[in-house]
Design a protein around this nucleic acid. Structure first.
Lengths: 205, 205
DNA sequence: CCTACCGATCGGTAGG
DNA sequence: CCTACCGATCGGTAGG
């Protein structure tokens, strides 16, 4: 029981630290210092740095599910739920759920060139997230809220891109308008996907 | 003369290494080993790790300008140049200009939580890049190729988001369709921005 | 550009 | 959960 509580408090701190310094930049010594415990005492909970990284990822995933995806999934099927997921993602950056912005965007870019179990776990998390987006889009099509010719993978790709772009603009550039821009882009994109027909006019010049 | 050549060969290797392992993961010892020279010999060229990181960033910026932006800027003003910049960016990921994908996307996410000169230099690079995108959009408006009500900052944000999304899908997920999806999204977005008028129809249900 | 070295910190272990 | 320790590597320096 107490071991579990200790472990959870370690992981909460590890998630915050890693969101700022990266999953590789997370060190056992620094983490132990922050928590006022010995390095080896902390180490004993995990057995290796890789296990600590994997456990940290899992804890970050839980936080994301609780703070972002699960509440949005309570919205009614179709367009409302899809919009709720998108708005929840954008709000999630503004609410500082992780102190360094989106944990998984940062982890994705950090580990895309580092093969191993950590990279695989990050990819699995992102696969699930993109899958949830695609599923919400597919349901919205089934409900007749989106055009039949909407490609769920394509639209999910575009929405996720806007989320990553918003995170970038917010975290690195400190652009205050970033979230508003993302919201505007997402809502215009969804409006297009819900239009009954769009004439294929292009510029004539 | 010879010192300059050595320095450049160090930086070429540093750029490749950092694109895979990150600018922080880049270590002087590893880099020296790769190049078959002593750590202190390499170190003498820069004086500190931070200076090495800044020089590596500068070298990566030069490579990006030569491989991506400058060729595209040779295209005629307006829509053709804007499209060329976008296509050049997407091709740049497919051509493996950097072995780990887009150097600056990775650096942006790595350093957005680490204040200092390196982060400032990354932000300056991204500022210039977004500025170049905005300028190309503004010129396309002036030429009458894009609608008057197009917001250059908004459109540049959306295009850059799609680029980052494509990099993510390619590098982490190994999604072969990533570049096609990005191309399709970019071209549809630009087609919308170039339509003379778009009815504000939304779903009625 | 080298050898030789510094203190600090890394992940990890022994033993309790 | 601790103290005490390991070899390896970190960024950086002295001296040539």
């Amino acid at each position: 029981m107490k071991g579990d509580r200790t472990r959870q408090s370690i992981l909460d701190r590890a998630v915050d630290l890693a969101s700022l310094e990266g999953l590789q930049g997370l060190t056992i010594g620094r983490l132990a210092d922050d928590l006022g415990m010995s390095k080896s005492g902390l180490f004993a909970h995990f057995g290796s740095k890789e296990e600590l990284q994997l456990a940290t990822l899992e804890a970050a995933g839980e936080r994301f599910l609780n703070e972002v995806l699960r509440p949005a999934l309570k919205q009614p099927r179709g367009y409302p739920r899809l919009v709720a997921i998108c708005d929840a993602w954008i709000d999630y950056i503004g609410r500082d759920v992780f102190p360094g912005g989106c944990f998984f965007a940062a982890a994705s870019f950090e580990f895309d060139g580092r093969p191993g179990l950590v990279r695989d776990a990050i990819a699995a998390n992102m696969h699930d997230w993109i899958g949830a987006l695609e599923k919400a889009i597919t349901i919205a099509k089934e409900e007749g809220h989106l055009r039949d010719d909407v490609d769920p993978s394509q639209l999910a790709f575009e929405l996720n891109s806007l989320f990553f772009g918003a995170n970038f603009d917010c975290q690195l550039r400190g652009e205050r308008k970033a979230l508003d821009r993302a919201r505007r882009a997402v809502h215009e994109r969804l409006a297009i996907a819900s239009q009954p027909l769009r004439p294929a006019r292009r510029r004539t010049a």
